[in-house]
Computed example of a mutant assay.
Amino acid sequence: MTLLTLNVNGTLHKLDIDPDMPLLYALRNQLGLNGAKYGCGLGQCGACTVLVDDKPVFSCLTPCLGLEDKRIRTVESLGSAEHPGPLQRAFIDAQAAQCGYCIAGMLMRAQALLEREPHPDEATIRAHMASNLCRCGTHLRIIQAIRAVAGQGGAA
C-alpha cells in the first residue's frame, strides 16, 4: 500500500491504496463516487470514462499511480439529480438514457469534446463518441443531446 493524493472533482483525497489499483476502484470503493461504472474491464465500452486533465480516459484501465499531479473529474462534478448541469439536462430532455448504465461515461466523453470544441458538427460528435457504447441503442438521442448543448453556445 502507498499513500497517494488524488485531486478528484477539485478536492484532494489522501488514499492508502495499491498504486496499481485502477482509478475506477479508487473512485467507487474508496471515495464513494459511483457514477463511473464497471462495464467490460477492457476499455472497450466506455462506461467507466472519467476526465483526467480534461481528457477522457477509461478508469478501469488507468492505474492510480501517476495521477497525483492530475485533475480527475467524474460525472458527479457536472451536477446532481436535483440540479443537473446543462449537458445532463440535455440528456434528460432528449431521453438519452434507457437503462442509464453507459450515461456517466457518455456524459464525460461529451463534456471533454464540448470543452475542447464548443460547436462540433455531427461528424465530429460521432467520431468522438465512437469509443463509448450504449447497449440500449440510444446513440441517436445522445448525439441529439450533445448537439443541443453545442447549439446553445458550448460546454456545460
Rank of each mutant, 00 (worst) to 15 (best):
L33A: 10
D54P: 01
T124F: 03
C40F: 11
P63V: 10
P120T: 04
P120Q: 08
A110V: 09
L87E: 11
G32P: 07
D93W: 00
L42S: 14
Q98Y: 05
I125H: 07
D121G: 14
E68L: 00
D53H: 03
E76A: 10
R89N: 10
D93Q: 15
G32D: 09
C48W: 07
A94F: 01
C48L: 08
A104Y: 00
H119R: 15
L27A: 11
R73G: 01
C40K: 13
L42C: 08
P118H: 08
P63F: 09
G85I: 11
D69L: 07
L67V: 08
G66V: 09
Q111F: 01
C99A: 08
A123K: 09
A47F: 00
E122W: 02
G79F: 01
P120M: 08
D54W: 03
E122D: 13
Q98W: 11
L23K: 06
I103F: 11
F58T: 11
L23T: 08
T124G: 01
T62I: 01
S59C: 11
L42G: 07
C64A: 15
A81W: 00
A90F: 02
Y101W: 12
E122P: 02
G41S: 09
V52E: 06
V50P: 08
G39F: 03
G79K: 04
G79H: 03
R71T: 15
Q98G: 06
V57R: 13
G41D: 13
K70D: 03
N29H: 14
L114G: 13
G105C: 10
P118Y: 05
C64Q: 04
L33G: 07
R73L: 09
H119L: 05
G43F: 02
C45Y: 09
N29S: 13
C40S: 12
T124C: 07
E122A: 06
I103W: 00
V75S: 04
M106F: 15
L23G: 06
C102H: 09
Q30F: 02
A123G: 05
R109I: 03
C40Y: 14
C99L: 13
I92V: 12
I92R: 13
L33P: 04
A96W: 02
S80M: 10
L78G: 09
C45L: 12
G35F: 05
L42D: 06
R109V: 10
D54E: 15
L61N: 01
M106A: 09
L51P: 12
E115K: 14
T124E: 12
L67Y: 10
G35S: 14
C60Y: 04
T124H: 08
P56I: 09
L87A: 11
E76S: 04
L33Q: 03
A112W: 03
A112C: 12
L42Q: 15
G46M: 03
